[in-house]
């Protein structure tokens, strides 16, 4: 079922928590170079689906492939290709911005070049705050630092869960640029948002998660958050 041109292929993904079924058989194919936005109500299972693609949750049923690698059988191959931006920023508040990035680089086994770290921080507008502890950052600044961390991971597949939350217009542009850079390199992006206008302007394709399944989204259908 896997073809070289697709970034993600999900087939019949179902997941339950206790006795409640959040996903009931979601199918989705994302091509290389494609950006897909998923709309859905609160509790429709968007985050669950993203966490399954990120190998953080196992599906109760169904299977999935990321760049030809099976989620269940080759999780490490999947993990080395994805970059997840979740609800939380994965930022340690008692470390400085530069130390946070340095930690990520050391976890990847890369050497920490202070000038490269500073350059990455400058791209997200935190150049002046490299040596400030993240605890003092505003929510928007922490989100920007999370975007810098995502850049450091150099992912082929971006998994973005409400990436615009707490970002100002300039910060929103940073997300757009990150998606564009990833796609240029042959990567793909899955984007979860409740913002219909941003979804349609950034993504090639917009789908809906409804009653635990993926459905095509028709313009005009209001997705209430």
């Amino acid at each position: 079922m896997s073809s070289a041109s697709s970034a993600v292929e999900l087939a019949g993904i179902a997941r339950r928590f206790g006795s409640r079924w959040v996903l009931k058989g979601a199918d989705l194919v994302v091509g290389s170079g494609e950006a897909v936005a998923i709309l859905g109500r609160n509790g429709s299972g968007k985050t669950t689906l993203l966490r399954i693609v990120a190998t953080l949750l196992r599906p109760s049923r169904g299977s999935g492939v990321v760049f030809g690698h099976d989620l269940a059988r080759e999780p490490d191959a999947v993990r080395s290709r994805i970059g997840l931006l979740g609800h939380t920023n994965a930022i340690y508040p008692d470390l400085t911005a530069a130390e946070n990035l340095g930690f990520t680089l050391r976890m990847l086994g890369r050497s920490v070049d202070p000038r490269a770290v500073e350059a990455t921080l400058i791209t997200v507008g935190l150049g002046a705050h490299a040596n400030t502890r993240a605890r003092g950052f505003s929510a928007g600044m922490q989100r920007r630092l999370a975007l810098a961390r995502l850049r450091a991971l150099e992912p082929q597949l971006l998994l973005l869960d409400e990436p615009y939350s707490s970002l100002d217009p300039e910060g929103v542009e940073l997300v757009t640029a990150l998606i564009a850079d990833t796609r240029r390199a042959g990567g793909a992006a899955i984007l979860i948002t409740h913002d219909v206008s941003r979804a349609t302007s950034i993504a090639d394709r917009v789908v809906m998660l409804d009653d635990g399944r993926i459905a095509p989204w028709t313009p005009g259908v209001l997705v209430a958050e």
Partner: peptide
Amino acid sequence: ELEIEAGALDALLLYPG
């Protein structure tokens, strides 16, 4: 708790290996 508060446990688990 340090990891959970920072929402960093997921990030730790996503490093391959």
